[in-house]
Computed example of a mutant assay.
Amino acid sequence: MERILITGGAGFIGSHLADALIDQGYRVRVLDALSEQVHGGVRQPPDYLNPAVEFMHGDICNAESVGEALQNVDAVFHFAAAVGVGQSMYQIARYTDINNRGTAVLLQCLIEQPVKKLAVASSMSVYGEGLYRAADGQTCAPPERLPAQLQQGLWELRDKNGGSLQPLPTPESKTTSPASVYALSKYDQERLCLLVGQAYNIPTVALRFFNVYGTRQALSNPYTGVLAIFAARYLNGNSPLIFEDGEQQRDFVNIRDVVQACVLALERDQAAGRIFNVGSGLSHTVRDIAAHMGRLLGREEIRPVITRQYRVGDIRHCFADIGEARRILGYTPRIGLEEGMGELVEWLQTQAAFDRFEAANEELSQRGLRL
């Protein structure tokens, strides 16, 4: 394989992957619509995009643009997507159009212009709640939390007898249960790609990214990763607002480890037809992550605020079992949270961040999606 297309490749993850592929001798083409929410009003590729990238400005939903981008391409990383759980719950048509129909347009074009490998970016959100262990030692996939429970501030999940449940690392075998429009669209993306890939003999792999963090995150996008949102709050002298009680457990994985997994998925033939979790394999509470970000930024005087509110579509605990990626891909996370957050903070000191979180939060509240 020589030339790789990355849809959505001017963004956070795609641009880092482009760097790694170019360093390894691949030629990289990027198709990106340069969404205003991610890139601001600028209609030029971001300064951080590798100058060796062949950039094409175009919409994933436009078959003509996609067909042109696929010319003489050997493999595709499909990263183009609208991202954000909360926003997806009131921009339903937009998320479904970009994520579902955009993927369908790409696959329709791939029937006429097949490639040697297709990798699609999926999300941990497809699981809904992660895997749990009940008091009797049995593992289980609990149902969604009920609004009446959340309104009482009863955040943790319970079994049918009211017993406590212990969160466990979530493997790919756990039944999916998307709890938001975004999550459902990511599930549709991975299933469409795997289904069509099998039908047309295009080796396809789906990568379920957990909470990715690192340099080049869109700091002014209030629907980006939680670390970037917290950073924008701190940099503007505002307290991070934490939903529920802050004890939600998540898996934070550094962008460099995500890129490692992507390259392995491209180069390992054994990856074809499979789904892989891409995380650190560790869990941290949102409360601890927020406080640690404040310390690293030297903003200890700004204390995170526990709102004890919840958002429709949020889940309680989910962190990755990465055994399958270790076994099949040879994936090994190398960047610890301390090192990774240190790099992120160093980069943050050079950035301007507009804090739009409260406006986005109010939008959810007005629509009854934040209570």
Results as ranks from 00 to 15, higher is better:
191 R>M: 13
221 N>G: 01
124 M>L: 09
178 P>Y: 07
344 L>S: 08
70 L>E: 00
348 L>K: 08
229 I>S: 04
69 A>S: 03
45 P>K: 00
339 E>G: 07
60 I>H: 01
301 E>N: 13
174 K>S: 11
26 Y>W: 11
334 R>E: 15
369 L>R: 01
137 G>W: 04
277 N>A: 04
162 G>D: 02
6 I>M: 01
256 R>F: 12
297 L>N: 03
339 E>Q: 15
268 R>N: 14
249 Q>H: 13
102 G>K: 01
57 H>K: 11
95 Y>C: 02
55 F>T: 08
349 Q>E: 13
311 R>T: 14
37 Q>A: 14
51 P>G: 05
278 V>H: 07
65 S>W: 02
297 L>D: 08
152 Q>G: 12
98 I>K: 08
159 D>E: 06
123 S>P: 05
192 L>G: 08
94 R>W: 12
353 A>T: 00
268 R>L: 05
262 C>N: 11
304 P>T: 01
193 C>A: 15
222 P>A: 04
171 P>R: 08
312 V>R: 03
358 E>W: 07
11 G>Q: 03
364 L>S: 06
53 V>C: 11
258 V>D: 01
276 F>K: 00
122 S>G: 14
120 V>H: 02
20 A>Q: 05
33 A>C: 10
175 T>L: 14
79 F>A: 08
307 T>R: 09
365 S>V: 10
138 Q>N: 05
298 G>T: 09
234 Y>T: 02
364 L>C: 07
315 I>L: 10
356 R>Q: 12
116 K>N: 15
155 W>R: 08
259 V>Y: 07
119 A>W: 05
109 C>A: 15
220 S>L: 02
97 D>N: 13
167 P>A: 01
226 V>G: 07
117 K>Y: 01
182 Y>A: 00
101 R>H: 14
151 Q>I: 07
94 R>S: 12
174 K>G: 04
7 T>Q: 02
9 G>E: 03
295 R>Q: 12
162 G>S: 00
29 R>K: 15
62 N>D: 11
354 F>V: 15
231 A>S: 15
292 H>L: 14
95 Y>L: 04
22 I>D: 10
61 C>P: 02
265 A>F: 07
71 Q>S: 12
57 H>Q: 12
245 D>Q: 06
334 R>V: 13
48 Y>T: 02
252 F>N: 06
71 Q>G: 10
99 N>I: 12
363 E>A: 15
254 N>M: 06
275 I>H: 04
369 L>I: 01
102 G>W: 00
146 L>R: 13
192 L>A: 11
288 D>Y: 13
149 Q>S: 12
335 I>V: 15
281 G>W: 06
212 V>H: 06
364 L>P: 11
230 F>G: 00
72 N>I: 05
46 P>D: 00
298 G>Q: 05
343 E>Q: 14
184 L>M: 11
73 V>R: 05
159 D>H: 07
200 Y>L: 05
217 Q>T: 10
247 E>Q: 15
